Every structure is written in C-alpha cells, then in structure tokens.
Measured scan of single mutants.
Amino acid sequence: HMTFVALYDYVASGETDLSFKKGERLQIVNNTEGDWWLAHSLTTGRTGYIPSNYVAPSD
C-alpha cells in the first residue's frame, strides 16, 4: 500500500469518512474512486474515505 501524509486536519462528514489530523500517516487502500480515496490510518487504525487533496505522498 502507498503511504501518504495528511496536509491538513479533516473532520469526517459522514459515517464512511475518516477523520484525521495534519501530519497523520495514512495507507491508501483504494484510490480508484476519483477525489475520495479509501484509506487506513496508521495512527488510529481506523479505515474510511478521505479527500485526496488533503494528503500528499510520504517519502
């Protein structure tokens, strides 16, 4: 899985979304859904959809 880092805080707007904090590391499970990607937080262990423009590839 690709690892990304959150650029901003995001508060989930629905049950399927994943809240995260700036700097949180996320594994992308599925990024074929356009602007919303299914991600797994390496910080909280939770999985949900995130806005793709809130994250950047982590080196």
Rank of each mutant, 00 (worst) to 15 (best):
G23K: 02
H40L: 15
G34I: 11
W36P: 06
I50W: 00
D17A: 08
L18Q: 03
N31C: 14
R25K: 13
S13H: 13
I50F: 03
A39F: 02
Y10W: 07
L38V: 07
N31T: 14
I28E: 01
D59V: 12
Y49G: 01
T16M: 14
V11Y: 10
G14N: 14
L38R: 04
V55R: 01
A6S: 05
L26V: 04
D59W: 14
S19I: 05
T32R: 09
F4P: 00
S19A: 07
D9R: 02
D35R: 09
S52E: 03
R46N: 10
R46V: 06
T47K: 08
T32V: 09
R25N: 08
A6Y: 00
H1Y: 14
T47L: 08
T3N: 07
I50Q: 00
F4V: 14
I50H: 00
F20L: 07
W36Q: 06
G48E: 01
T3C: 10
Y49R: 08
L18S: 03
V55A: 05
G48F: 04
A56I: 14
G45A: 05
H40V: 15
L26Q: 00
L18F: 08
R46W: 07
L7F: 03
G23Q: 02
M2F: 10
P57V: 10
T16C: 15
A56P: 04
N53K: 13
K22D: 01
D17T: 08
A39N: 00
V5R: 04
S58V: 15
P57L: 12
S13C: 14
Y54W: 07
T3Y: 15
Y49A: 03
D59I: 13
L18N: 02
W36N: 05
W37R: 02
T43I: 12
N30A: 11
S19F: 05
P51D: 04
L42H: 06
H1L: 12
N53W: 14
G14R: 15
G14C: 15
S58Q: 13
E15W: 09
T32H: 10
V29H: 15
L42F: 08
Y54F: 12
D9Q: 03
D9G: 04
G34M: 11
V55H: 03
F20N: 00
L7I: 10
V5L: 07
K21N: 09
W37I: 07
Y49H: 06
A12T: 04
G45L: 07
N53F: 09
G23D: 05
A39R: 00
Y10T: 01
A6C: 07
Y10G: 01
T44P: 00
D59Y: 09
D35A: 12
S52N: 06
V29W: 14
A56W: 09
D9F: 02
S52H: 08
L18I: 12
S58W: 15
I28A: 08
V5T: 10
T44V: 02
W36M: 10
V55G: 04
D35H: 14
G34L: 11
A6G: 06
Y8L: 08
Y10V: 02
D17P: 03
E33Y: 12
L42D: 05
G45H: 15
S41P: 00
H40I: 15
W36D: 02
Y49L: 12
M2E: 10
W37S: 03
V29G: 05
I28W: 02
R25D: 04
N53Q: 11
E33H: 14
S19Q: 05
Q27L: 15
V29T: 07
A12V: 04
H40F: 15
T3L: 14
S52M: 09
S41I: 03
M2H: 12
L38Y: 11
G14A: 13
Y10A: 01
T16Q: 13
L42V: 08
P57Q: 10
L18W: 03
D17S: 08
G14K: 14
S52I: 06
L38W: 11
V11R: 07
A56F: 09
Y54V: 05
I28Y: 02
G48C: 01
S13T: 15
T16E: 12
V29S: 07
S13A: 13
A12D: 03
S13K: 14
G14F: 10
P57E: 09
N31W: 14
V29Y: 13
G23T: 02
I28C: 06
Y10N: 02
Y8A: 09
K21R: 12
H40D: 03
P57N: 07
R25P: 07
Y8T: 06
G23H: 05
F4M: 11
D35F: 15
V11S: 10
G45K: 07
T47H: 07
N30K: 09
Y8S: 07
V5N: 03
T16W: 15
S41D: 04
V11N: 11
T47F: 10
T32D: 13
E33T: 13
V29I: 15
H40M: 14
Q27W: 15
T43N: 10
N31V: 12
F20S: 00
D59S: 13
D17N: 09
A6D: 00
T44A: 04
A12C: 05
M2G: 10
H1N: 14
A12I: 03
Y10E: 00
R46T: 06
W36R: 11
S41Q: 05
D59R: 07
Y8G: 04
K21G: 06
G48M: 02
E24G: 01
F4R: 04
V29R: 07
A6T: 06
V5I: 14
Y10S: 01
S58R: 06
I50P: 00
G48L: 02
K22H: 05
L26W: 02
K22L: 05
I28V: 10
P51W: 05
R25M: 15
N30R: 08
S58M: 15
I28T: 03
A56Q: 11
L26K: 00
D9L: 01
L18G: 02
G48W: 01
L38A: 03
G34A: 14
K22P: 01
Y8P: 00
K21P: 01
V55K: 02
Y49T: 05
D59H: 15
I28L: 07
G48D: 01
A12R: 05
S58F: 15
T43F: 08
L7G: 02
A12S: 09
H40A: 09
T3H: 14
T32C: 12
D9I: 01
R25V: 15
R46A: 10
G45R: 06
L42K: 05
S52L: 04
E15L: 13
E15M: 10
T43A: 12
